[in-house]
Design a protein around this nucleic acid. Structure first.
Lengths: 186, 186
DNA sequence: TGTAGCATGTAAGCCGTTACATGATTGA
DNA sequence: TCAATCATGTAACGGCTTACATGCTACA
């Protein structure tokens, strides 16, 4: 018996993947999962809103890809989730079967630069400098993630992805610095 | 009298920006605008679906940011759009006022690599190779755009953005080749 | 003359966000 | 004991896509 594609959104697979990194032994609450997403997923995907994390977990649970165990805290019940065997199979079949789409980039700074002729060069310099600052901040965050991952064999792939991100940020910074020199009135 | 923010979506501003590149003299149909978007916008934003181009143009026209002139072709009427003075002002105020958000990247290949432990290393090699192929194709497309832009002063900023994209693709290719060497069993 | 491609839209629906409601916990 | 923070959800809505409907044009 093979489990076939369940036709989830990529974000669902991403969340399922985060649960898979934790394995079948440990369980996470929606809140904790959101924290993982904020820490890792946001660098190369999108960290979904808290509300969506809860909705997706509920859907995954209904499909049997994760199992939920209820916890009572005072008057309120909450859920802890962990990936099931079926969940892992579905994830593997997604990883093996589907061709990965080309990345989608939404780059507000590049978009603004495109219309550079409409504004003063000073404004463009400022725009690019702001982007460099944002890049530096992101890079710091990602570097700390990378440090935490260390060189443990079990974290090999997350570490590779983090290195990818660091390389990307460094490349962006280099490109932007070159572009700044090409601004008129430099 | 100053025109203040009209609270458009970024995609609206992007389309308005494409019309601005054409200036107040020439006019475009929805179909032609979509072609421009496919050719340039898609590299660092998203080229909206045909249907959305029409809807956005209609909205922009209703706000007075573009002007529409009807054309009769047989039994069917169609519209040609050009940016208005107000449209340019709104675009400039957007460029000058708002802080650009950090780019959003949705990178299916990186996402899959994160879960690399769940699949065979061969599959990962294949995944990364596919991405390299996609990159090469994209790069070719963008390079031809860059060539068309030449070094005319009036196309300075579009050319800078195109160079940005080329640098990005080259950097990605380099990073991915390094990552492939780190795959187990290389 | 009929079919493939060019062109213009409308309708339905998905994915994901922000806003809102509510409860538990901690510490000033 | 009150405010801030942690935590769990539901509701409303927006942006964008795919599917669909329709007409025009060129040419085999």
């Amino acid at each position: 018996m093979t489990v076939v594609s369940q036709d989830l959104s990529t974000t669902s697979y991403a969340l399922l993947g985060l649960l898979a990194l934790d394995g079948t032994s440990s369980s996470l609450t929606g809140y904790e999962l959101k924290q993982r997403a904020d820490r890792t997923l946001r660098f190369y995907w999108v960290s979904p809103a808290m509300s969506q994390v809860y909705t997706e977990l509920d859907r995954l649970a209904r499909s049997g890809l994760v199992s939920a165990t209820a916890e009572q805290t005072g008057r309120r019940t909450s859920q802890r989730y962990q990936i099931t065997g079926t969940g892992i199979e579905v994830l593997q079949s997604w990883l093996n079967s589907s061709a990965a789409d080309f990345p989608i980039l939404k780059h507000p700074t590049a978009l603004r630069l495109l219309m550079g002729a409409l504004v003063a060069p000073d404004r463009l310099r400022r725009l690019l400098q702001d982007y460099l600052d944002q890049l530096a901040e992101r890079r710091t965050d990602l570097a700390s993630v990378r440090t935490m991952l260390g060189d443990e064999e079990s974290l090999r792939y997350p570490a590779m992805v983090a290195d990818w991100g660091l390389g990307y940020y460094d490349s962006e910074a280099g490109i932007v610095r070159e572009l700044m020199e090409r601004l008129p009135g430099y």
